[in-house]
Nucleic acid binder design. Structure first.
Length: 686
RNA sequence: GGCGAGGUAGCUCAGAUGGUUAGAGCGCAGGAUUCAUAACCCUGAGGUCAGGGGUUCAACUCCCCUCCUCGCUACCA
């Protein structure tokens, strides 16, 4: 098989960001898939380095620290601890789990940056950025707040407005304020180091779109294609930031600057490998620089660009590094029909699950694998969780193991009975089962884990079918030898299940091995029918899975709804009052009631309607972002309020000569402000 | 609007390079069975493969158009 091509494997999963705990979306996205892959490789006795770590730099962490009045280090210590602990308890079997604040990582990232610098790969550029004179520092996008130019939300960030979702540049904000001092920041020149990604386009095109056109996933290729083939191509990207939390830029004259978090994070894979290698007395370079090493990055779809374009470009430039053989990115997992959201607390948190469902780690692993978003976004529901547990794990897998073991105790006092020769049904069964290990292996090697898992379940199903067909509980009355053979075979199917389930259900696999007294059996033995031999004693049957009651899942759903309600209540808080304005300032605004006389959809926009309004003075053209909530015909003839003397602004090639005023509720729904009875167009409001 | 990914049985999803009656699991209906956590096993009903054109002897599979969902991106004065 192709896997034998490689002498060793370096397997990474995306570094989780240390600003919150882990939820099921993270698990389904990359941690469970990578763990399955790695456990399979280990079972095949391959040489694997499975590395990960917490991503602890970046602005979001410094902001969280500031909000909570603690240091960034305290923030990352807290979440690094929670995440590391949950991973361990959940059985994600990293060889090494590091963190990007570790000394080895700082050293490695600085070194690689210096290497690129000395090769002349960076372009130094000066650009204008906001600077807080009082705090004496440049402001990252997230450190600037202001009024969103799109929706008027007053607490939009410099990179994005959370209210309307539009992405912004800090200079777009109206009335920008520094989050550090509250002062108005000033624009000031600053120097940064840019990597000219455009230079790598030909190489990336060939490597991804040609060499890997067949073996990479559709969604990954599609994303790459859209970056490589459309628009103006890849733009130079700054690899440094003005900040004091992160890895200092190791160049003279770069004081007060750190490496861009997306430059340093993927290097975390390398530093994590280094730490592991040192502990184990291995050579880390073999895992990153030897052509016989297979490198695979497991990620979620939000990370595709960095893992397929930026990081490979960096590795390629460094020269002696290998590139990933594959980047199997999953899509997103929704929860009960809605997007998972950390800030809205719409999530199933791993650390809470581990406490509320003790000993049921494999159930969540099973459900998240069976319903993994491998090709498209999928939905996790508690009802599905319950159904898969009760109908599949309990009824098929657990039940089969239980039947075989209980019967052996009942008829043979817990000793494996003697094999007396095969009948045609047995031969047929063994032939069928013998094909499974290879089929499952092939699916795993193609990163088709849900398919692999379903094959594993078919194997258990076949066991149930075998018992139903041979009916040992009947033959025991007439033919003891036949019964002995059947149970010997059934127990060997169970033993096989312990091997085949090991990548997917590691805790369960261990339990089965404990029950049968098996040790050191790996993938190469799968398919053999003498894994457990006559005369060996097996332990009493212990239930592998337990039914989950309606009340349990109902409680979980209620918990979600409660947190959603709480969140909505919190969101309902009215915005704080703005600064006092003088009467004169107020009088400068020319507010009027106007009548909408025409409304048409703007061709090139989803959100804009082009309105013609009668102002009593003339007919003006106004663009308004209401197309998603109002149809043109709903608006014609209506009277609304308008700011008449707002400076005109061009959008999508059309000039807007004012602004229609709207009220907006917590959900972002817009309401027209209409006089309670009709009035003359142009009536002034004061 | 641009780009990307999707739209296949009630539900969750499979269906390289186009080729006989479109598959699986769950759910549902019926049957059989009692070793097993009332579980297992068998049988069955259910789809004009989002819609409309086109290419072809032949299309879920290729091309064009339309509609819907999700993601990135632009625009909601």
């Amino acid at each position: 098989m192709s896997e034998n091509k490689f002498k060793r494997y370096t397997i990474t999963s995306a570094l989780p960001y240390a600003n919150g705990p882990l939820h099921i979306g993270h698990l389904a996205g990359c941690y469970i898939p990578s763990d399955i892959y790695v456990r399979y490789l280990r079972s095949k006795q391959r040489d694997v380095a499975y590395v990960c770590g917490s991503d602890e730099h970046g602005v979001a962490i410094t902001i969280k620290a500031k909000n909570e009045g603690i240091s960034p280090q305290e923030v990352v210590d807290r979440y690094h601890g929670i995440m590391k602990n949950s991973f361990e308890k959940f059985g994600i079997s990293f060889d090494h789990y590091s963190r990007t604040s570790s000394p080895v990582h700082h050293e490695t990232a600085s070194q690689l940056f210096t290497d690129l610098y000395q090769k002349g790969e960076f372009d130094e550029k000066e650009t204008e950025q906001y600077y807080d004179a009082e705090a004496k520092q440049f402001l990252a996008d997230r450190y600037i707040e202001g009024t969103c130019p799109n929706c008027g939300y007053e607490e939009a960030y410099g990179d994005q407005c959370e209210k309307c979702g539009s992405s912004l540049s800090p200079t777009d904000l109206i009335n920008p304020r520094s989050k550090l001092s509250g002062n108005t920041p000033v624009l000031k020149m600053t120097k940064h180091w840019f990597l000219d990604l455009g230079k790598y386009t030909p190489f990336l095109k060939k490597w991804i779109l040609e060499d890997h056109a067949k073996d990479w996933k559709n969604n990954v290729l599609g994303q790459c294609r859209s970056w490589l083939e459309t628009g103006d191509g890849l733009q130079p990207r700054s690899m440094t930031r003005d900040m004091d939390w992160g890895i200092p830029v190791p160049i003279a004259g770069a004081e007060g600057k750190v490496l861009y978090v997306w430059f340093d994070a993927p290097i975390g894979y390398i530093s994590s490998t280094k730490e592991w290698a040192k502990e184990k007395g291995k050579d880390w370079e073999l895992y990153w620089k030897d052509k016989d090493t297979k490198l695979v990055h497991f990620i979620g779809k939000d990370n595709i660009v960095f893992h397929c374009i930026t990081f490979p470009a960096i590795l390629k430039t460094l020269g002696d590094f290998i590139l990933p053989e594959n980047v199997p990115a999953n899509e997103f997992l929704n929860l009960e029909g809605q997007k998972i959201s950390t800030s809205k607390n719409w999530a199933v948190w791993l650390h809470e699950y581990l406490e509320e469902f003790p000993g049921q780690e494999d159930v969540l692993r099973y459900v998240l694998t069976a319903n993994a978003p491998e090709t498209k976004d999928n939905d996790f529901t508690w009802k599905d969780f319950q159904a898969r547990n009760n109908n599949e794990l309990v009824a098929i897998f657990g039940n089969f193991v239980n039947r075989a073991v209980v019967l052996t105790h009942k008829y043979y006092g817990g000793k494996v009975p003697k094999h007396h020769g095969l009948e045609p049904v047995d031969e047929e069964l063994i032939r069928t089962l013998a094909e499974y290990p290879d089929k499952i292996a092939q699916s795993v090697e193609k990163y088709r884990f849900r398919e692999a898992l379903s094959l594993m379940m078919d194997f258990a199903r076949t066991g149930n079918k075998y018992l139903a067909e041979t009916e040992p509980w009947k033959t025991i009355k007439t033919n003891e030898e036949r019964t002995a053979t059947i149970l010997n075979i059934a127990l060997n199917i169970v033993a096989n299940l312990s091997i085949l389930s090991q990548p997917f259900l590691p805790f369960t696999s261990e339990k089965i091995k404990g029950m049968l007294g098996l040790q050191n059996i790996n993938w190469d033995k799968a398919g053999e029918m003498d894994l457990i031999k006559e005369g060996e004693t097996i332990n009493k049957a212990a239930l592998l899975f337990q039914k989950i009651e309606d009340s349990t899942v109902e409680a979980q759903i209620q918990k979600l709804l409660d947190s959603k309600k709480k969140n909505e209540a919190a969101k309902y808080k009215a915005a704080p009052m703005k600064e006092i304005v003088s009467f004169d300032d107020f009088m400068k605004l020319d507010l009027r009631v106007v009548t909408i006389v025409e409304a048409i959809k703007v061709k090139k926009s989803k959100k804009l309607l082009q309105l013609k309004v009668d102002t009593g003075i003339d007919i003006k053209t106004v663009l308004s972002g209401v197309a998603e909530q109002f149809k043109p015909e709903d608006l014609v003839g209506r009277q609304v309020t308008m700011l008449l003397n707002l400076a005109p602004k061009k959008m999508v090639g059309i000039e807007s000569e004012g602004m229609i005023l709207m009220a907006e509720d917590a959900e972002g729904k817009l309401k027209l402000l209409t006089p309670h009875e009709a009035t003359n167009p142009g009536s002034s409001i004061s």
